[in-house]
Amino acid sequence: MEAMIEENGPSTHEQCEVSSASQARQKLEGLLNKNMRIRMTDGRTLVGLFLCTDRDCNVILGSAHEFLKSTDMFSQGEPRVLGLAMIPGHHVVSIEVEEDSLEDTQGFGANH
């Protein structure tokens, strides 16, 4: 990919940065509307559609379901429907995306 960019334009240092930003943007755009699973600092996990993010990694999930930590053997494992939920970036512990929905996209997780 980088080669492609180099072909398309002069490769000054500045433009390289711009392209890496646009590449990142492309990557993230490829993830939009994919099923995502995010673990939060308090151990809860949210599963929902990735709708929106920003520089601070605040993430908005659509039709989100909330799962409790399963180390708690008494939680029934039933999810709680949350709907539209925003997870502040500093509370995001890990992000996962459903593999099936990745097939048609490149960039993320392909080398995982």
Binding site: R55, I95, F108
Partner: peptide, 30 residues
């Protein structure tokens, strides 16, 4: 459908850092 989850934490956070301050990355409809 026994989906496999792929961890993308690192890449995701990295990609986010490339966004401009105040920029929202979102779907056209959102």
């Amino acid at each position: 459908n026994n989906a496999n989850w792929v961890n993308i934490t690192h890449e995701f956070k990295g990609a986010c850092k490339e966004l401009n301050l105040g920029e929202l990355l979102h779907d056209k409809l959102f």
